[in-house]
Amino acid sequence: MQVETIRDVLNWTISFHRNLKDCLLHCSKQNKDERSQMILRYLAEHEGSLERMVKGFENIAEEKALNTWCYDYIDKHPIVEHGHCDSPFKEMDMSHIMEKIVNHHEQVLELYNHLYSRVDINSAKELLETIQNVEENEIKRMVQTANRFSDM
């Protein structure tokens, strides 16, 4: 996927959440631990929700914001495609699963944070800030829910 504009970043983010959702579901069927299976299924549902939210932003955002160029960042920090699942979660326990999920999302947040600091167009800044806030809040929700799972 060639990433040059904020629209491309949103499309990449949608694909990121979709691929992570699919991978989590795939691994939930392979993990032997019941709690890990539960958290993997929960996280997969959550990733599906994030996928739909970001897609919604793409549908309502101003064209000017979506067409803002951001290739200078991408040239220096290539975005990694997450197209396949090599079952990274199939043998992890809940804490390691959450650590890996949070790390993945922190990388996405770094991207949005950097892009926010580089764009000059107000509508693009607002869009990036809104998506970044949604991503941050959803990570917090996922971690809180995982903590509840571990208390069971």
Rank of each mutant, 00 (worst) to 15 (best):
K100H: 14
K100M: 13
K100I: 05
I131S: 04
Y71A: 15
D86T: 08
Y73T: 03
S123M: 06
V134A: 06
V54M: 09
S117K: 13
S15C: 08
E126D: 14
K90M: 08
L109A: 06
P78G: 08
M92D: 11
L109H: 02
H114K: 11
S123T: 11
L66T: 10
M38Y: 12
N147K: 15
S87M: 05
S28G: 02
S95R: 12
K55N: 13
I60D: 10
M53N: 07
F149A: 03
E62W: 05
E91V: 09
I121W: 05
R7F: 05
F57Q: 05
K125N: 01
D33W: 09
I139Q: 04
Q30D: 09
K125T: 01
H104C: 08
H104K: 13
L128P: 01
D86E: 14
M53H: 07
K21S: 14
I97H: 06
L115N: 01
K21C: 07
D8T: 01
H46R: 10
V3W: 12
R148G: 09
K32F: 08
L20N: 07
I39G: 01
L25S: 13
E126M: 11
I121G: 03
M53G: 02
E81H: 09
L109P: 02
Y73A: 00
F89H: 11
G56R: 14
I139L: 04
P88I: 00
M94Y: 11
